[in-house]
């Protein structure tokens, strides 16, 4: 078996690379595929937090590279889905602890036993980025509909084009707010695709549930009702080659409304 190695990158920080990695990984694993997530953000790791696996990490990618443990030992299994495994970044080291060849070797080993290897790339275009893309054959560029994020994404797409190994670069538009697009305050999906000129793999609506899910360590794809969760499940299906229409974002379901429905507030008088 030779799996697909997909790098998730963006250039700019804070656009949702890690959230995207965690959610696509979880969604693919839920469909029965074997998935490994690699966090390459050495020194600023977050992927373990989003998956709620921080307390289970004993060995990190640096331990594997410096041969303090075997690769198999460093893979942390997800709490719910044994198909999903995480190779965590070291928090106490920096990007220079790893080089591109070492990461490529790890990706090559992992793709032999897994269907998907998703590499969560750090922000920036320096060593961390170079490391993360080294083993990948596909890339997903995450951006938000803001000029600064789009400018950085454009730069990243240019850099990815120079890598021969990367055969497919797709766009994931995150934190889209249909209301703002309607009132012409936010760039529309078509505008962004028009600027970047790469195929779209997903549109994720802004969802307050993301904050809760991050704090809880529970990817939002596990929430059947969340719109962002549904959007990420659709992205996973598109990665698997299915044709799924993009979500109609005109009727956003309020997350808070749901919680509020679950809570009854009163003064108890007995």
């Amino acid at each position: 078996m030779t799996g697909r190695v997909i790098v998730i990158t963006s250039g700019k920080g804070g656009v949702g690379k890690t959230t995207t990695s965690a959610n696509i990984g979880t969604a693919l694993a839920k469909s029965g595929y074997k998935v490994v997530l690699i966090d390459t953000d050495l020194g600023l790791r977050n992927l373990d937090l989003l998956l709620g696996l921080e307390n289970r990490i004993v060995y990190t990618i640096v331990d594997v590279i410096e041969e303090r443990c075997k690769l198999r030992q460093a893979l942390v299994k997800d709490k719910k889905n044994p198909n999903l495994q995480l190779l965590a970044a070291a928090q106490t080291r920096d990007k220079t602890a790893v080089n591109a060849e070492q990461l490529k070797e790890i990706c090559d080993t992992l793709k032999e036993e897994n269907d998907f290897v998703l590499v969560d790339c750090p922000a920036g275009i320096e060593q961390g980025f170079q490391n993360a893309v080294a083993g990948a054959s596909e890339a997903i560029v995450v951006t938000t509909p803001e000029m600064s994020a789009i400018r950085d994404a454009d730069r990243i797409i240019g850099l990815l084009a120079t890598k021969e190994e990367i055969t497919s670069v797709k766009l994931l538009l995150n934190r889209v707010r249909p209301n703002l697009i309607k009132s012409n305050e936010m760039m529309s999906v078509d505008d962004v695709v028009g600027i970047l000129e790469i195929p779209l793999v997903g549109i994720i609506p802004e969802d307050a549930g993301i904050i809760t899910s991050t704090n809880k360590g529970e990817p939002i794809v596990n929430d059947e009702n969340a719109l962002a969760g549904k959007a990420y499940r659709n992205v996973a299906e598109r990665i698997l080659g299915e044709e799924v229409p993009f979500l109609d974002l005109d009727e956003p379901k309020g997350f808070m409304a749901k919680i509020k429905n679950a809570i009854a507030k009163l003064k108890v008088k007995v």
Partner: peptide
């Protein structure tokens, strides 16, 4: 009287793990 109180109705839930899940999402409010 219990002032400053909240009633959380979980009477429809039939297993513990679901209860904890529901409760934790409510408690985050």
């Amino acid at each position: 009287a219990v002032e400053n109180g909240f009633i959380i109705d979980l009477s429809s839930i039939k297993n513990t793990s679901q209860l904890v899940f529901e409760l934790s999402s409510i408690m985050e409010h």
